[in-house]
Simulated scan of single mutants.
Amino acid sequence: MKLFDTGDVRLHYRVDGPDDGAPVVFANSLGTDMRLWDPILPLLPKGLRIIRFDKRGHGLSTCPPAPYSMGALVSDTEKLMDFLGVKDSVFVGLSIGGMIAQGLATKRLDLIRAMVLSNTAAKIGTPEMWADRIKAVQENGIESLADAIMERWFAADFRATPELELWRNMVTRQENDGYAGCSAAISGTDFYTPTAGLRLPCLGIAGSEDGSTPPDLVRETVDLIPGSKFHIIRKTGHLPCVENPVEYAQVLTDFLKSVGHV
């Protein structure tokens, strides 16, 4: 376990694989930590330099007072990648992680040569919707939202398994300020115009049962980028890397090969 001090926050990060491996950076969703990617990592090609981190207010990173801006989350990621000497990565972002990917690609294209926008969009939800969630977290804690979050995150088959409790626990043990802070960042973000200006290889991944970012929303975003690819993983929700890691890893591997990253 390692910490990097950005000057504003201390980020928990982890690097796996050889120092000279092709870098793949993973950014996880609201309410999860870097363990989100554990199911797919053993299924990826050997020799990659895998970089994961907990965004501010999540996992083992420090939790500044809410609210946060998307610019701050992008800057955190940029500083970590510069610290690690990462250039020309493939950046895989899920949900808010995919928003961070879009913002970072717009700001620092030298850091990202291709990106995967998984279960995300240029704009997610409405300010009113996010305000309601932030209020609920601040007044009653994340526990008050946990069951509704599980319904959006996972298809019915997965919700019937014992593993669901692990992910529910992960959510409820996040700090309220971290969840509320990142919710505010999502609420204030609309990347349609900057994302439409991007020119880099892009893969969109959606879950057919995703209640947070439905497939049409994901497709609408990746279609902003000329030449992008799109893939739906059936019978999965907002976290298809958890529900169907085999297909997710295969689709990601095929994309890495198509852009010459392995």
Rank of each mutant, 00 (worst) to 15 (best):
G97F: 03
M34G: 11
S89K: 05
G97S: 00
A27C: 15
I40F: 02
K46F: 00
D82S: 14
I51Q: 05
M99G: 12
M70R: 09
V92I: 01
G103L: 04
P64W: 12
I96D: 09
P18Y: 01
R56C: 07
A27Y: 13
D54T: 07
D33R: 11
P39V: 09
D88G: 13
G17S: 04
A72D: 12
I96E: 10
K46P: 06
L109H: 15
L11W: 04
R10V: 12
G97E: 05
V90S: 07
G98S: 05
V24S: 00
V9F: 06
G98D: 07
L84K: 06
L36C: 08
V24Q: 05
P39M: 07
L94V: 14
F53M: 09
M34D: 11
F91V: 07
G57H: 04
D19C: 13
A72V: 13
P65M: 11
G47M: 01
T77N: 05
S61E: 06
A105G: 08
P42W: 04
Q102S: 05
D33I: 09
F26T: 07
V74P: 11
D8N: 15
K46N: 00
R10W: 06
K55N: 15
Y13V: 05
G103W: 08
V15A: 02
R35K: 12
A22I: 03
D16M: 06
D19W: 12
G21F: 02
L11K: 03
K87T: 14
A22W: 08
S61G: 10
P45F: 00
P45K: 00
Y13L: 01
S69N: 11
D33H: 14
R10I: 08
K87D: 15
D20C: 00
R108I: 09
D82Y: 12
S69D: 12
G85V: 01
I100Q: 01
Y68V: 02
P42F: 00
G31M: 10
W37L: 01
T32F: 15
L73G: 07
F83T: 14
A66D: 13
R14N: 08
R35P: 10
A72P: 13
V15I: 08
K107L: 12
L11E: 07
D19R: 14
V86R: 04
V86N: 07
V92L: 03
D19F: 12
K107W: 10
K55W: 15
L30W: 04
P67D: 04
K107T: 14
R49V: 02
D33V: 08
L84I: 04
L36D: 03
P39L: 03
L48Q: 00
D38P: 10
G17P: 01
G97D: 05
